[in-house]
């Protein structure tokens, strides 16, 4: 599944200072859909190169990280249960850095 992931607010530093990642995420065999929960696990394994605790806490993002799916707060689409589709754009921005 082709997705565009964007990291901002300092989170890009955890993935080699690259803000925009065009990625291809494979869904598990026999499972058609990909949820945000699956994506977070994938990102943590494949993109985050350092200090994963700055990005995740438990199985979700660290408090203070804004998540947008297609420019829409993921709270509106079911957070971890949000189902992703081909060409979706997912944005992660940290608020933890200074203003």
């Amino acid at each position: 599944m082709q997705l565009t992931l964007e990291f901002g607010g300092g989170l890009e530093l955890l993935c080699e200072s690259k803000k925009i990642h065009k990625v291809n995420v494979e869904t598990q065999k026999g499972v058609e859909k990909l949820t945000m929960k699956d994506l977070l696990t994938w990102v943590r394994t494949n993109l985050i190169k350092e200090r994963p605790e700055m990005f995740m806490k438990g199985d979700t993002v660290r408090p203070g990280v804004l998540v947008l799916v297609n420019d829409c707060d993921w709270e509106l689409s079911g957070q971890l249960n949000t189902t992703l589709e081909e060409k979706d754009v997912v944005v992660f921005i940290s608020t933890l850095h200074g203003g």
Partner: peptide, 21 residues
């Protein structure tokens, strides 16, 4: 962007566009 079918409601102010937050 295309709406997520889990958020079918409309903006509570304009009652027209898809809510974003």
């Amino acid at each position: 962007a295309k709406p997520k079918n889990t958020a079918p409601r409309l903006c509570c102010v304009c009652n027209h566009r898809r809510p974003a937050l």
